[in-house]
Design a protein around this nucleic acid. Structure first.
Lengths: 264, 264
DNA sequence: GAGCGCTGGTGACGAAGATCACAGTAAAAG
DNA sequence: CTTTTACTGTGATCTTCGTCACCAGCGCTC
């Protein structure tokens, strides 16, 4: 399932913390990122399930969170590690994966800003079931397990929010499961994956323009296939006028046709 | 992925409720099941995550639960239905599956007594993501969504327990994901599945005796393979002295060898 | 006891895809 | 500006597994 020399996957074993301090008057880091120091004043607070708590709860959380900016390639936590706590992703994108003894990797999810990482393991007190690697630099807040649990005990509001968040996480896992488990061919899996990804973008006349900053290798790991077949199926799709690819932008030209692939 | 004439999978579309009333002095139904009327006095209460709440919480829950006994083949809920509420499985076993447009079925889990079914969909207020079919008759308590949510709001204790339960559910989903997504061959998937199943039974000198009341077809649906290959791999394993099968009892004779299959 | 529904067991065949190997680019590093 | 590294694109093989087809056994009902 792995091929070429890509076999030797590199992995940062230690979290690389970068400058989280904002220079006086400035809000930009070397990465060109907007830094969120104060969750209360965060511009995204409303739209994010876990961040949109009452002022009181957010203030209390502020007391137990620590913030850091992570470069591309940084690892937030590793599968099998006892859960130290959870991360709230403020910006950037994180790859959640699991890998087997022989190095085969399965990517379960690409997390977007606003998501909570490591929540299931933190609340159950077990080990992280996945590995979290930063694939697009960004900021994350860390909350230690014990702090979080005592916070949860006091705040019924937060507990409910956590319940919802967990429900969503589960939902997306099932959805991923369906792409991998219910498809007859790699083409079907790929179509499923692309449609799933496209569901976050607006559709216009059966066409969707999506940003897909993933390598073929990574897509292969998401659908449980090999890099070469992803390349081949993708060119098939292009030849059949279903897609157009320009750099990291992918335009689904014929969404209906893709859908008919997954629905047999 | 489906074969033979087994293609036409039957599915009960409506819940079949059976006698839940216990005759005076008796605790047995026509199914030979022990009926649990009162959760407070339930002999299993201690050992079951969700049932092991304080007396107060259990009493309050009693007011909003309804109990029923389900025969084999009954369907508790169907994938895609708006979530009405959740079920607490008191006894019996339930198959959780999802199926695609062409009828291919993927089984995600066989639930055991004490588990909560339909929880993620109920708390997020979405549709059930899976279908729940009874494969071994048993009793389940039903709690309607709105009742449950208002109960959760008041009881921080219960909310925490729900959080844990969701974490466990997620954990098992990931584990299932690994069997399906990280294996190179059907044999590997089957070995993974058997070992996972065996982890609930005691090991003795590298041997484990497990009860496996699943048909080859069902196992195939659990590992995302076909009935015939399950049969073939299973006979392979027997020929290699890794297994012994007698009726629904399966003895793993050489656990180490099975493990070496999954670890490459 | 004849027939039917469901399950397990096997052989034959073909297609899909993993793997290997290498060429061509494109971007970063030196 | 060259060199290296990372990614994409294809061709040739070879294995696996899904599919079709058929048989046998078992429990059930009529």
């Amino acid at each position: 399932m792995l091929s070429d020399w890509r076999r030797n996957g590199t992995r940062f074993q230690f979290v690389t913390k970068a400058h989280s301090r904002v220079p006086p008057g400035g809000t930009r880091t070397p990465y060109g990122l907007e830094i969120i120091e104060n969750c209360l004043a965060c511009p995204h607070r409303q739209e994010r399930l876990f961040c949109n708590l009452s002022d009181g709860a957010v203030k209390r959380l502020a007391g137990i969170t620590s913030s850091a900016v992570y470069p591309k390639g940084a690892t937030l936590f590793v599968e099998g590690q006892p859960a130290r706590g959870l991360f709230v992703l403020c910006s950037g994108r994180v790859k959640l994966s699991t890998c087997s003894a022989d190095g085969t990797t399965l990517i379960l999810r690409i997390s977007e800003p606003g998501e909570v990482l490591g929540l299931p393991a933190t609340v159950t007190g077990t080990c992280y079931e996945l590995t979290a690697d930063v694939i697009e630099p960004g900021q994350a807040k860390f909350i230690a397990r014990t702090d979080f649990l005592s916070f949860l005990k006091d705040s019924g509001e937060a507990a409910l929010r956590v319940v919802q968040q967990l429900g969503e996480t589960y939902h997306s896992a099932i959805s991923e499961m369906r792409t991998i488990g219910l498809s007859h061919s790699a083409g079907e899996k790929l179509a499923r994956f692309l449609l799933e990804w496209a569901s976050n973008y607006p559709e216009e006349k059966g066409q969707v323009r999506i940003e897909l900053t993933l390598t073929h290798e990574e897509m292969a790991q998401m659908i449980g296939s090999s890099r070469e077949t992803v390349t081949r199926r993708l060119t098939d799709f292009r030849k059949k006028q279903l897609l157009e690819v320009t750099g990291s932008t992918l335009v689904i030209k014929n969404k209906a046709a893709l859908e008919s692939i997954v629905n047999g």
